[in-house]
Design a protein around this nucleic acid. Structure first.
Lengths: 340, 340
DNA sequence: TAATTTTATTGAATCGGTTCAATAAAATTG
DNA sequence: CAATTTTATTGAACCGATTCAATAAAATTA
C-alpha cells in the first residue's frame, strides 16, 4: 500500500500557483496580501486538506503553541478536574496542552521540566511537588532562560513565579474557628510537610483561630503526612497512639478518607467519637458514609486564572500582584458535630 | 540579557572534533563506531549538556517518540488513575504521553486524532467516546494511513483496532446473578446507549443471568443515561416516575453516586427501600454513606496491556487475539441486601 | 511621461536534526 | 607488496515550515 505522502506547503503553493512564502503568509494571517491571492491559497488548502506540520513550525519559530501543565497525582480527582479545566481554557486559546506528572517526586519534576524545555513549550503551569527541601535548580533554569511559568495551588518561595491559589490560611482559619466554637478542645491537624507554603499557610489559619480563642497550639497537634489515602491512614494511627483527639483536620479530602476508613476499622465512630474535616470538597465528599465537613477550593476559577496568567507572562506583561488568592468556602456536614 | 542560544549537534561535533553525522550516529546508538570516538562525543555531549531537539528529530524521522492517549472524562477518577498507569508504562519505554480529552463528544475525538496525526504520534490509545451512532471516518483515516492504534475499555465495532478491556458481560452477569439470588425481583439497569459495545456487553450478562433464572428482561428494565453524576440523577428520576424497582445497577460508580444522592434527596433509603450497585470500584466507593456494591475493573493491568499492544502493533507484530479480556471482580457491600 | 514611492510576491537561507552515498583508512588476502 | 575487502567517518541533501532581503508591478507624484 503506497502510503500517500503528507501534503506540504509546496503542494499548496503549486496548486495555488504562488510561492511557498506566500502560502506561509496567508496561513499566518499576514494583512499585506491581495485578497484574491489569499482566496486562491485558501481554496488550495481546503482542496488538499492541508495542515501545517507542527514540528517544522516549531523548529523554525522556536515556539510550539503548547503549554505544559505539571501536576502531582491524578488519582486525586481534584487534579483530574483541574486538568480538565486547564485543558478547556488552553484549548480556547488555540494552544495545546502537554501534561506531566510528578507523583510528588522532585526528580520527576525536574525531568518533566527538562522535557518541556526541549519541546519548546511556550509556558509552564506548575503544581509544585509535595517534597521536603526541594532543590530548585530547575525553576531557576526556567528563570534564567526566560521561560514563562506560573504556579497553581501553591508555590516555591524564593522564586519569581506568580501563583493562582486558594487563601489556604483563611480556609483553615474558618474551619478551625468553627471547630473551636462547637466545643472541640483538642484538634489535631494532619498537615503536609510544615516547611512548605501549602502547609505553612494552613497552619497560620489554624494558629490564628486558636489564638483568638486564647489557646496555644502544641507541637503534638501537628502531624505531617503524605497527602494521599495511605498518608491519612498512617497519620491516624500515629495520632491514636498518642491519645484520641476530639477533632482531626486534614490537608485534603483524600487524606480524610484515609482517616475515616482507618477510624472505622478501629471501631471509632465519626462524628460521635471524634470529628473529621477535609479540604477541597470533592464531589464524593458529600456522599461518604459520614459526609465530610470540608473547605471548597474553586478549582475552575483557579485554573482559569493560571492559564490567564501564563499567557500574560508569556506576552511580557508585568503581573501586578504575584499571588492571586481565591476565597475558599466552608461546608459543614456530618463528619463533625457540636461537643459539650 | 543575551539569551544563550540552544546548543546544537554542530556544537557537539565541533567540540568533539567529528562530523555531525558521527554525533548523530553516536546518539542513535549505532554499533559501527570506534569506541574512542564514541567516548569523545559523549564527553562533549555531557560537557555541553546537550539534548536533541525533538522537533528537528520528528521532522526528519517522521516519528515523535510519543504515544497519544484519548480519554473521555477526567472528572471520573477511574480515568485519572488510568492516565497515571498509562503514563508510567509509556515512560518506562522511553516514550512521551500526549493526552487528549473528548468529554464524550465525537467531534472532539476527531479533532484530537487530527492533532495527533499532525504531531506524528507513533501510536494512539483510544477510550471511545460515549456517543450515539458515531461517524467513524477518523478511525478509518487511521487505518488508511497505517497509524497504529488500540482501544482501551471498549471499542468501535467495524474497525480493525485491538482492544484491552474488562469482560463486561461477565461482570454484569455475576452482579445480576447475585441480585437475583438475593431475592430481587425487579432490577433496573442504568445503561449507556444500548447500541454501544460497552452497554451491549453489560446487557448481555444482565439478560443471561435473567434467563438462567427463567426470567425475561422487559424493555422498561433498561434506562439509557450519560455515564456521569448528573446522568445518574436524571435516570433515577425517570425510573422512579415509572415506579420503584427493588434494585438499580449502573454503568459506573459515578452514576451510582448520582443515584444515591438523588435517592436520599427523595427520602428513599438504600438498601432498605432499594438496592444500588455500581461498576469500577473507585477507591471512594467503599466509603460512601452506603458503601457501594460494585464490580472492579483491573485498571492497571488493562492499561499496561493497552500500552503493550500499541507498541506491538507499531512494530508490525500481528496480534493473535484482537480482544484482550480481563476478569472483573464482584464486591458486595452495603448498598445491596437480601430481600424476601 | 519619467521618477519615485508603495504594495505584493518571490525564493533562498534557516531551524536542528537524520541518513546515506562517497571516501578515506585499516585490515585481510593471495 | 599490491589488490581487495572491511570498517569508520564525512558532509551534503533532506524533512516542512518561516522569514526577510530582493524584486517586480502598480500607484502616486512632479
Amino acid at each position: 500500500m503506497a502510503t500517500k505522502e503528507r501534503t506540504t506547503i509546496r503542494d499548496v503553493a503549486a496548486l495555488a500557483g504562488v510561492s511557498v512564502g506566500t502560502v506561509s503568509m496567508v496561513l499566518n494571517g499576514s494583512n499585506k496580501l491581495n485578497p484574491e491571492t489569499r482566496q486562491r491559497v485558501m481554496d488550495a488548502v481546503i482542496k488538499l486538506d492541508y495542515r501545517r506540520n507542527p514540528h517544522a513550525r516549531s523548529l523554525s519559530t522556536k515556539k510550539s503553541m503548547t503549554i505544559g501543565l505539571i501536576i502531582t497525582d491524578l488519582t486525586n480527582p481534584f487534579f483530574g478536574i483541574m486538568v480538565g479545566c486547564v485543558q478547556q481554557e488552553i484549548d480556547a486559546k488555540g494552544y495545546e496542552l502537554l501534561l506531566g506528572m510528578t507523583k510528588n517526586d522532585i526528580e520527576r519534576e525536574k525531568k518533566v521540566i527538562a522535557k518541556f524545555i526541549d519541546s519548546a513549550v511556550d509556558g509552564i503551569i506548575i503544581v509544585p511537588a509535595h517534597y521536603r527541601n526541594p532543590n530548585l535548580s530547575h525553576i531557576y533554569a526556567l528563570e534564567q532562560r526566560n521561560i514563562p511559568y506560573v504556579y497553581l495551588t501553591t508555590y516555591y518561595p524564593g522564586t519569581r513565579g506568580c501563583c493562582a491559589m486558594t487563601d489556604l490560611a483563611q480556609g483553615s482559619y474558618e474551619l478551625t474557628n468553627y471547630l473551636l466554637n462547637t466545643g472541640h478542645k483538642n484538634i489535631v491537624m494532619i498537615s503536609g510537610y510544615v516547611e512548605l507554603v501549602l502547609s505553612a499557610e494552613r497552619l497560620r489559619g489554624f494558629k490564628r483561630a486558636h489564638e483568638e480563642h486564647g489557646l496555644e497550639v502544641r507541637a503534638d497537634q501537628i502531624v505531617e503526612a503524605e497527602p494521599d489515602y495511605n498518608g491519612g491512614r498512617e497519620a491516624f494511627d500515629q495520632i491514636i497512639r498518642r491519645g484520641k483527639p476530639d477533632a482531626i483536620m486534614t490537608v485534603n479530602d483524600i487524606v480524610s478518607m484515609g482517616v475515616l476508613t482507618r477510624a472505622r476499622e478501629m471501631g471509632l465512630r465519626v462524628p460521635e467519637d471524634l470529628s473529621v474535616a477535609g479540604y477541597d470538597d470533592l464531589l464524593y465528599s458529600s456522599m461518604l458514609e459520614t459526609s465530610l465537613t470540608t473547605v471548597r477550593q474553586p478549582i475552575k476559577e483557579m485554573s482559569a486564572a493560571a492559564v490567564d496568567m501564563i499567557f500574560k507572562v508569556a506576552e511580557g506583561e508585568t503581573i501586578e500582584n504575584k499571588l492571586m488568592m481565591f476565597t475558599p468556602q466552608l461546608f459543614i456536614r456530618s463528619s463533625t458535630k457540636k461537643r459539650l
